[in-house]
Deep mutational scan, measured.
Amino acid sequence: DEIHIHFNGVTIEFRGLTEEAKKALEEAIKRGASEEELKELARRLIK
Score class of each variant (00 low, 15 high):
1 D>V: 14
1 D>I: 12
1 D>H: 14
1 D>E: 09
1 D>T: 10
2 E>R: 13
2 E>M: 13
2 E>T: 15
2 E>Q: 12
2 E>L: 12
3 I>Y: 15
3 I>H: 08
4 H>M: 06
4 H>Q: 05
6 H>N: 08
7 F>A: 03
7 F>H: 03
7 F>V: 13
7 F>R: 03
8 N>S: 04
8 N>G: 10
8 N>L: 07
9 G>Y: 02
10 V>H: 11
10 V>E: 07
11 T>Q: 06
12 I>T: 03
12 I>L: 06
12 I>A: 02
12 I>H: 03
12 I>W: 06
12 I>P: 01
13 E>C: 14
13 E>T: 15
14 F>T: 06
14 F>Q: 01
14 F>G: 03
14 F>S: 02
15 R>T: 11
16 G>W: 10
16 G>T: 06
16 G>N: 11
16 G>A: 05
17 L>V: 06
17 L>T: 01
17 L>A: 05
17 L>D: 01
18 T>Y: 03
18 T>W: 08
19 E>G: 13
19 E>L: 14
19 E>I: 13
20 E>F: 12
20 E>T: 11
20 E>D: 09
20 E>M: 06
21 A>H: 13
21 A>M: 13
21 A>T: 08
21 A>Q: 08
22 K>A: 07
22 K>N: 03
22 K>W: 12
22 K>T: 06
23 K>H: 11
23 K>W: 14
24 A>P: 03
24 A>M: 13
25 L>G: 00
25 L>A: 01
25 L>T: 00
25 L>Y: 02
25 L>R: 00
27 E>M: 14
27 E>H: 11
27 E>P: 00
27 E>Q: 11
27 E>K: 07
28 A>D: 00
28 A>Q: 03
28 A>G: 02
28 A>V: 05
28 A>P: 00
28 A>N: 01
28 A>M: 10
29 I>M: 11
29 I>F: 13
29 I>C: 04
30 K>L: 11
30 K>W: 15
30 K>C: 05
30 K>E: 11
30 K>Y: 14
30 K>H: 09
30 K>G: 09
30 K>A: 13
30 K>M: 12
31 R>H: 08
31 R>F: 12
31 R>D: 12
31 R>K: 09
32 G>Q: 02
32 G>M: 04
33 A>L: 10
33 A>F: 08
33 A>G: 03
33 A>Y: 10
34 S>Y: 02
34 S>N: 10
34 S>C: 03
34 S>T: 12
34 S>Q: 05
35 E>K: 06
35 E>C: 07
35 E>T: 09
36 E>W: 12
36 E>D: 10
37 E>P: 00
37 E>I: 04
37 E>S: 05
37 E>T: 05
38 L>F: 13
38 L>Q: 00
39 K>T: 13
39 K>R: 13
39 K>Q: 11
40 E>W: 13
40 E>R: 09
40 E>S: 11
41 L>H: 00
42 A>I: 15
42 A>D: 00
43 R>V: 07
43 R>A: 09
43 R>L: 14
43 R>E: 08
43 R>W: 14
43 R>D: 07
45 L>I: 08
45 L>C: 05
45 L>V: 03
46 I>Y: 11
46 I>F: 13
46 I>Q: 06
46 I>A: 04
47 K>M: 15
47 K>H: 14
47 K>N: 14
